[in-house]
Design a binder for these strands. Structure first.
Length: 713
RNA sequence: GGGCGGUUAGCUCAGCGGCAGAGCAUCUCGCUUACAUCGAGAGGGUCGUGGGUUCGAAUCCUACACCGCCCACCA
């Protein structure tokens, strides 16, 4: 057998993956009969709107390690892959693409746009699929699921209908986070807060001086609020006072509310329920003392008609003008330019989020949160690392109703129709179905129904991923609840928390037993990788240059749960060397064991036996690390043992022994046994090179693939 | 404002009560028929700071400093 000096991953990996696919063992239904107990992981579906990045490689590697390990352990291992339509995100990516071509979504009908995005995602899906394969993922492609597959859409609709029937869905005009740039509302999670310096304006309101950063919202003022214990304003409380405004005189009531901070500004604030979260809540508490909210800003971020001469102006322009005019009319006391506060911005475009009153669909979330809290508190769901348990519980215990409607085109449409006959402005009559358009309104019995048009927050459907993907009965029975949910810590609330709530609600079972959270991948300078910084490591290019196995090792060693992982090309190069080292151990063995016959069981010396025992001890350690989700330690141990113990010492010591006719056979047996053991232990981490070698090893009872070999110990 | 994590060799990080560790990088020597993508060897650390517990502290407690992250309605 002629064996090249260096292992060339690029030449081999594609072929090896094809071999694995050919065996069919990625699909647990095809595994040999002795694989009984199920093990299941659902892949967090990568977005079908771009290509694989290093973060994907990380989770693919972690999940593949768990899957391959459990498969070798004799489990009926299922790793179910998928792709995410990623509603809002994809719409933006696609709109940017259109913009580059000089086109816009608004030039076409909604159906046409939808079809185009559909085609786009389907193409991308194929690209991503090939890239996942390139990473060596041993997932079951026969169960590959797209988040817009019929069964997922149906499930989503069903859940919505069930919730609506049980009174957990409501549609209400409420203050929502609205991005005037993207023209959609968001849930609280899509809003980011940035620290900004904003001028704080002190405006005269009759006898009051009120501090605000947003003078342009003054047209929406419906009260002045002071703290209940603040004595200095006591004489005004409960009274309507007359004030001079830019639009003439106005009467406004003074109320008391705990939410007012006496230290802020002058201790009295203007209440603008239509454009501020705090103020909205004050209004909720004082409805009988205050008029209805006045909307001064519309969905386009323009001033409304109630603002008189300012109507139609953008918020920014209006603010400048209002400040100017206040000065002119001597209504501005002073400006504090040094004021710093938190500004809400869109997580995607970074532009200011405008809180405005809108009708949206909400989930009454508390009833869902309670069992989700219990599941984690009781330990039925274990979170690794465990400090995230606290983070999860804190969020869950303070959860707010979830706005699930988005004003986008790309996504799953909300199955709700409004009866045009029965609805009034204040009292809308909606018909909610499990997907199909209703024939008539149950009230007026006529068909004058109009679809809502909004789509679901993508996380509402992905939150149902665990049971939606396993819908056929035998899968649900065997693989649900799944064994592990492996994902990044930054989507703990977005996704993991929602999966727990929605799964418990719909199936009355936990969706997974363990949540393993990994960190973000950073460059040598600990910077987050981003295209604009130019520090991205493209996993596909790296895999082509150094091999997927090397990339996988570098992603795993030094990577602890919940912590960010730093990788560099230099490090990857180091693991490329390691992979080659393994290759050369194999080369040495083949060179010196040409006359080795498997299955002969030669007599072993005491020293030989000791070496085997030593390996078994190592294998036990590695196994226990994997069982405890300590993949970094497991990989490091295999690395260290195979290189610095097996190659540096055992092989070196064996050289003279292999020259000794009497001891040779026993030593060959030992070396081959231990090395085969190393291949097995290392397989989940570096599947390609180990498989390539395994295929060429002279072994008794050799399996079709190392993938289904028995785990040592 | 609340919470979490971190601070150990040049870099990335283990170790978490008993002689300071690994990988990468650096330096020296070596192309010896497995491998120069290699081998043999070397240098390099008051374990963030102060206090405490202990026979013994990188490890436990406590205060502080700095870095990072998350949550939060401070207008």
């Amino acid at each position: 057998m002629k064996i090249p000096k260096a292992y060339d991953p690029n030449k081999k990996e594609g072929k090896i993956y094809k071999l694995w696919e050919k065996t069919g063992y990625f699909n647990p239904d095809n595994l040999p009969e002795n694989h009984k107990d199920p093990f299941s992981i659902l892949m967090p579906p990568p977005n079908a709107n771009g290509s694989l990045h290093i973060g994907h490689s990380l989770f693919i590697t972690l999940q593949d390690i768990m899957t391959r390990y459990n498969r070798m352990k004799g489990k009926k291992a299922l790793w179910l892959p998928g792709a995410d339509h990623a509603g809002f995100e994809t719409q933006i990516v696609f709109e940017q693409k259109l913009e580059k071509e000089g086109k816009s979504r608004l030039d076409m009908e909604r159906e046409e746009f939808y079809e185009k995005v559909w085609d786009y995602t389907q193409k991308n899906r194929e690209v991503v699929k090939d890239q996942i394969k390139k990473m060596g993922a041993s997932c079951d492609w026969s169960r590959d699921t797209f988040t817009l597959d019929e069964k997922i859409v149906e499930t989503t609709h069903n859940t919505f209908k069930k919730m609506a029937d049980e009174g957990l869905i409501y549609r209400k005009k409420r203050l929502v986070n609205y991005c005037t740039n993207h023209q959609t509302a968001f849930s609280d999670l899509e809003v980011e807060h940035v620290r900004r310096k904003t001028p704080l304006y002190y405006i005269k309101y009759g006898p009051f001086i009120l501090a605000t950063t947003r003078p342009e919202t003054k047209f929406g003022d419906t009260a002045i609020a002071v703290h209940p214990e603040d004595r200095k304003y006591r004489k005004y409380v409960g009274k309507e006072i007359r004030i001079k405004t830019l639009l003439g005189e106005k009467k406004i009531k003074v109320i008391q509310d705990e939410a007012v901070d006496r230290e802020f500004g002058t201790g009295a604030i203007k209440v603008t329920p239509a454009h501020s979260e705090v103020d909205y809540e004050i209004w909720q508490r004082h409805k009988d003392e205050m008029p209805d909210p006045i909307e001064a800003i519309d969905k386009d971020g323009k001033m409304t008609d109630v603002t008189g001469p300012y109507a139609g102006m953008s918020v920014e322009k209006a603010r400048k003008k209002v400040v100017q005019d206040l000065k002119k009319k001597d209504l501005l006391q002073r400006i504090d330019e040094e004021y710093e506060h938190n500004l809400s911005v869109c997580y995607k475009c970074g532009k200011k989020i405008e809180p405005i009153l809108m009708k949206q669909w909400f989930i009454d979330i508390k009833p869902l949160a309670e069992p989700a809290i219990e599941a984690v508190k009781s330990g039925k769901i274990k979170i690794i690392p465990d400090n995230y348990k606290k983070v999860y519980l804190h969020w869950m215990e303070n959860i707010k109703d979830w706005n699930i409607s988005r004003q986008n085109w790309w996504g799953i449409e909300i199955p709700a129709w409004k009866c045009q006959n029965c609805s009034t402005e204040d009292d809308e009559k909606w018909v909610i179905t499990a997907g199909k358009k209703p024939k008539k309104c149950p009230q007026c019995e006529e068909n004058n129904l109009e679809r809502d048009g909004d789509v679901f927050d993508t996380w509402f459907s992905s939150g149902q991923w665990p049971f939606a993907t396993l819908l056929n009965e035998s899968d649900l029975e065997q693989y649900y609840p799944t064994s592990v949910m492996e994902t990044a810590y930054d989507i703990l609330f977005f996704w993991v928390a929602r999966m727990i709530m929605l799964s418990l609600y719909k199936t009355e079972k936990i969706p997974f037993k363990t949540v393993y959270l990994h960190g973000l991948v950073r460059d040598e300078n600990r910077d987050k990788m981003s295209k604009s910084k130019g520090n991205v490591i493209n996993p596909i290019e790296i895999a082509e240059e150094y091999g997927t196995d090397a990339l996988r090792m570098s992603l795993i060693v030094g990577n602890l749960p919940g912590k960010d992982v730093v990788i560099s090309e230099n490090e990857i190069k180091g693991y490329r060397n390691y992979v080659n080292k393994i290759w050369n151990m194999f080369r040495f063995l083949m060179f010196r064991c040409e006359d080795y016959e498997p299955g002969k069981n030669p007599k072993l010396s005491n020293k030989d036996k000791k070496l085997i025992d030593e390996f078994n001890e190592k294998a036990e350690e590695v196994t226990s690390h994997i069982e405890n989700f300590e993949f970094s330690h497991a990989a490091e141990k295999i690395y260290h043992y195979s290189w610095h113990r097996f190659a540096d010492e055992i092989i070196e010591e064996s050289k003279p022994i292999l020259d000794d006719k009497n001891k040779k056979a026993g030593r060959q047996e030992v070396l081959i046994t231990i090395f085969t053991g190393i291949l097995k232990l290392a397989h989940p981490f570096i599947p390609f090179v180990t498989e390539e070698i395994y295929q060429k090893m002279p072994l008794e009872d050799k399996k079709e693939t190392l993938m289904i070999e028995e785990w040592p110990i």
